[in-house]
Simulated scan of single mutants.
Amino acid sequence: MTLTIATLERLIGFNSVSARSNLEIIGFIEGFLRERGFRLTRLPDGTGQKAGLYAEIGPSEGGLLLSGHTDVVPTDGQNWTRDPFRMSRDADRLYGRGTTDMKGYLACMLSAADLAARRDLTEPLKLVFSYDEEVGCVGIQKMADQLAPLLGSPRVCFVGEPTEMRVTIGHKGKAAIKATCTGQNGHSALAPYFVNALHVAADFVIELRRTQTRLATDGARDPAYDIAYSTVHIGKLSGGIALNIVPDIAELILEYRHLVADDPERIMDMIRDAARRVATRYRADFAGVDITLDRYNSYPGLEVPQDAPEVTLAGRLAGNQNIAKVAFGTEAGVFSALGIPTVVCGPGSMEGQGHKPDEFITLDQLSACERIMDRVVDEISA
C-alpha cells in the first residue's frame, strides 16, 4: 500500500483537467514504467498537447490488460475545503481531485507494474493510459486505430472506473447533439409577423419529450439499470440578442443514452423525424425555418453476457461475484468494439464521490483494488 499511496500523491499533483495538456502526467508514468523495463508506445493526438500511452512487459501473446484515463473533471465553481491538486489524508480517506475518478486506479495499475517487473511472467501485463475521457471518451477513440495492432489478444481488459470493486458488465452508449433552430429576425413590437426561433426550439423540446415517452414505453428495457430504458435529455437552450428583437437563431444541446439493445441510429432517426415535423409546421409562415442537427460526439455502450468467460475470470480475480451495470459511460465499449473481452471494475464510488468537491477514496477501496492487482500478476506469472 505504501507505493500505491505515494504514487497516488504524485498523480494528484498533476493538474490534468481535460481542458489542459496531460503531457506532464504521461511523462511521469512513462518514466515510472521505463525504469521497470516496460516496452512503451506513446500515442499523441493531433495537437501535440495530449498523448495516450501503451505499455507492456513479458511475452507478447495473450495476457491481461488494465486501462485508465489520466484526465479529471474541473474544480471550477465547486466548494473545496482543501487543495484539490495536493493529496491530503484524514483517517482512512485520501482527498484530492481524481482520487476516485480515477487516479486511485492508475496508482494501483502502477503498483501492479512494479510487481510484474519483479516476476517471471508467462503472459504479458498490458497497460493503456488515455486522455479526454471526461469529455465523452474522446481520447480512447482517437487512439483506437493505433492501439488495435499493439494490443494483440488479451484474455480480458479491466477498465478501472469506480464501481466499488464490483465486476460491471454493462452501461449505456451516448451521443451528444447540437440542434440549431432557424427563424426570422424582427422588431418585437411586430413579433407575430415573424417566426421566433425560440418558439421553434420550444416545440422541438416538446417533440423530444414525446420521443422519450416512446422510448420508455416501446423501446428496449433492462431492469438491471435504475433507468431501465434509453433516454433523451435536453441540457441547454439558448437564443436571442435582446428583448426587443425576435430571435432568428436558437440552439439546444441534447443527448441520448441508449441501451445496447436499442439501435442508436434508430434513436437518431427519431430525433431527425421530430425536427422535421416541427420545421414543416412553421414553413407555411416562413420557408427558411429549419432545425439542423450535429451529432458531435458519441461512444458505444457495453453489454457482456453474465456467463461470458471474461466475467468468470474477472469474478475470480476480484474475489467476489458482485455483478453490476452502471448508469455512467466508460471507455469499455471502445475496447469491446475492438474485439477485446472487457469489464469495468475499479475502486471508489462514482455515485458518492465522482465529480464532487472534496473528492476522496477510502484506504479499504484502494486495498481491495491492490488485492485484485496482486491476483492479476499471479495469473500471468510462472
Rank of each mutant, 00 (worst) to 15 (best):
D263N: 12
D90S: 13
K236N: 10
F335R: 08
L150D: 14
Y95W: 01
C157Q: 11
L94S: 10
I12F: 01
G288A: 11
Q49F: 09
L208A: 04
L8G: 06
A197R: 10
E379P: 04
R276F: 05
G173S: 10
V377W: 08
G301Q: 13
A284R: 15
D90V: 09
V167I: 15
S67Y: 00
D269S: 14
S130I: 07
A224S: 15
T81C: 05
A6P: 00
I29L: 12
G329D: 06
E133L: 07
R210W: 09
R119N: 11
L121F: 06
A202M: 13
H69Q: 07
A220W: 10
P347R: 11
D263K: 03
R166G: 05
I241T: 15
G96P: 12
R209D: 13
A91H: 15
S60H: 09
D145M: 05
K142H: 11
L313I: 10
I267P: 00
T122E: 12
I234M: 05
R281N: 10
T122P: 02
F204Q: 02
G58L: 12
I245S: 14
K325S: 02
C181N: 07
L8S: 06
L237T: 02
T211K: 07
R266T: 12
L115A: 15
G139C: 07
P305F: 00
L127M: 11
L127V: 04
I271S: 05
S16E: 04
A6K: 15
V167A: 02
D76C: 02
G77S: 09
G239E: 01
D45M: 08
F158Y: 06
R166F: 05
S67N: 11
N297W: 03
A116T: 05
I169V: 15
G339D: 03
V17G: 03
K172W: 08
M350T: 12
M268W: 15
K126V: 12
S60L: 14
I177S: 07
A19E: 15
G48S: 10
G354W: 00
A228H: 11
A327N: 13
H258R: 08
L243M: 08
M1V: 09
S21Q: 02
Q365L: 03
Q78E: 11
I271P: 07
G46T: 13
M350S: 13
Q49P: 05
M165K: 09
N244C: 04
S336G: 04
F85G: 07
M102G: 04
V138H: 01
E359H: 09
T70L: 08
N79K: 11
G219N: 05
S349Q: 14
A51V: 05
F204I: 01
R266D: 09
Q141E: 08
L252H: 09
F158M: 12
L208D: 08
A55M: 12
G13P: 10
D92Y: 09
Y54F: 13
H187A: 00
I372C: 11
A279D: 11
A19I: 13
P192H: 01
L53I: 09
T7M: 12
V376Q: 06
K126L: 04
N185Q: 14
T312K: 13
L8P: 12
A228Y: 01
D83P: 06
M270L: 15
V138D: 05
H187P: 03
D222C: 05
R266L: 13
T41M: 08
L302W: 00
